[in-house]
Design a protein around this nucleic acid. Structure first.
Lengths: 215, 215
DNA sequence: AGTTTCATCACCCAATCATGTGATATTACC
DNA sequence: GGTAATATCACATGATTGGGTGATGAAACT
């Protein structure tokens, strides 16, 4: 297959670092730096014109920062793989970057070789990040602990089944049909569910069920 | 500082692979294999007695599989770093493993050197995983796209406010009080909300609101 | 000036829900 | 054999909700 270079655009306000990156990418086979800018002010125009494969994005830049730039890129050209490249290692920045669609998150102390690997990786559908960043990302996911808490309500199997149907928007009558029981029985089960969850309406039960991941 | 070996327990039903891992770990400085088992039947007892630093856990094992074992370990000894080691690359298994507290997720085709690196990594608070796995994990997080999608329903401010109150379990009457409007107005707003969300009951509206993060 | 959107309110009616009270049958456990 | 938990069903009553129709005033836009 024909191997073309990965087209890269860099956003970085530090002139020295920007120069270093230019030299690194310019001198490496398979990589092509097609733009390097001091901030994200013109990001929309630049992305549309240059059509990069991968964007290396600093976060802390004057005037228009990297998170803002990232969001604009993901709106205009969601297929572009944006890798954050920053000194920040706090949950807040990581979380926002990931949620905004960044595929990778590297720290500036990443050695050049690893940086090139990461860019290739991002281009091939991977998600390059240090494993300390990965650990932080994992902690953002819902944990099993929450999942275990909930069955404290000790719903019976039947009750859980009915609560599930309730959450999916079924009326008493629909539940009765689906479970092949009378509507009065459904009523009876739901009364018990309300007791156990300490709620007094479908709405509350559904909200509680979803939030506490009972369903 | 004093450098002690990383104590490792392996769960793997394939005898050949188990033997290979024993040889690899036994012959590597800084690693100490303190147990290797065919399944998770005795996992509770084994973990308590052996007190490993890292557990390498296959998923598909007869009788008691790796996800089950993982959950038991995280309940008994949450400080143990469990790395999944499997051929499965589907979202379902990855998601369940991560949510149950696995810190890493490796595929069986991982080369031995990388495997040792990953174990060290897990032991040092990292989260070793291939970058294709990482990409899948990222997709499990709430994305900015979803956050933007939802206002596609174009609820007015008032409607959003009322939907929020609904989700919190308020009845029409309570909403009327809190918003200082008549109950008929609440009704009217809710009718419009149902139209926009394409639902026909509180329950459905609440479920949709929560799932699509409108609230 | 005309149109659209929004928030407000009113009335009606049928469907659905919440709650109480009580009964029966099955299963499991002591 | 007695007890407790579970699932089933029935009846009753009042409150709440869902849908329809329509009206008014304010703001925004054309």
């Amino acid at each position: 297959m024909t191997q073309t270079s990965i087209k890269i655009v860099v956003y970085e306000d530090n002139p020295d670092l920007r120069e270093s990156l230019s030299v690194l990418l310019g001198g490496s086979i398979g990589f092509e730096l097609i733009g390097a800018f001091v901030n994200c002010e013109q990001v929309a125009k630049q992305i549309v014109e240059l059509k990069p494969d991968v964007v290396l994005m600093d976060i802390d830049m004057p005037v228009a920062n990297g998170l803002k730039g990232l969001k604009i890129i993901k709106q205009l050209a969601p297929q572009v793989n944006v890798v954050m490249f920053t000194v920040f290692e706090d949950n807040e920045n990581i979380f926002e970057a990931i949620c905004s669609g960044a595929v990778g998150y590297l720290l500036k102390r990443t050695p050049p070789v690893k940086l090139l690997e990461a860019i290739q990786d991002a281009n091939n559908g991977g998600a390059p990040m240090t494993s300390s960043i990965a650990r932080k990302v994992l902690q953002m996911l819902p944990t099993q602990q929450k999942v275990t808490e909930n069955n404290d309500y000790k719903l019976t199997e039947r009750e859980s089944e009915i609560l599930n149907l309730l959450v999916k928007g079924n009326s008493y009558k629909m539940i009765a049909d689906k479970c092949s029981i009378s509507i009065d029985t459904v009523r009876s089960h739901i009364k018990k569910i309300y007791d156990k969850l300490h709620v007094h309406s479908q709405t509350e039960a559904v909200a509680k069920a979803i939030h506490e991941r009972i369903v």
